[in-house]
Amino acid sequence: MYYCVPAEKRLVGAAQAARLVFIRTPELPVPLDKDQVHHIAMLARLKLTDEEYAESVEKLSKIVDFIDQLSQAQTDGVVPMAHPLDAAQRLRPDAISEIDERDTYQENAPAVSGGLYLVPKVIE
């Protein structure tokens, strides 16, 4: 069974990925801990309640344990399949095909002003 262990016992961003190491271990599973779930939730931009955290640790650990079965598959040299028909991305001429429907689209926006979407202040 291969899995990776983050250097600081938590998931890390892309910039720190180089510090991850793969170790081989016969034991299963790899339960997630609360810190890891916190970090995943942060990456996913999800605020969870304390109760949700406790439940997520338990259920996500089960799910990770379940998908770990894949490590048993012999996949040397198998080309990953991204599209069920192996079709290539279709291209179209680089021409404007949309009409301006900003006002219509913004009817669904929670907060707009003068055609702009409003968010909390980002720059002081």
Binding site: L43, V78, A82
Partner: peptide
């Protein structure tokens, strides 16, 4: 969160890429 985990740095090959191979 499951998706974020399997796509996150360091786990991508072990899960997502592996799954795409098994899919094949």
């Amino acid at each position: 969160m499951t998706g974020t985990y399997v796509l996150s740095a360091g786990y991508y090959d072990a899960y997502y890429l592996k799954a795409q191979q098994v899919r094949r």
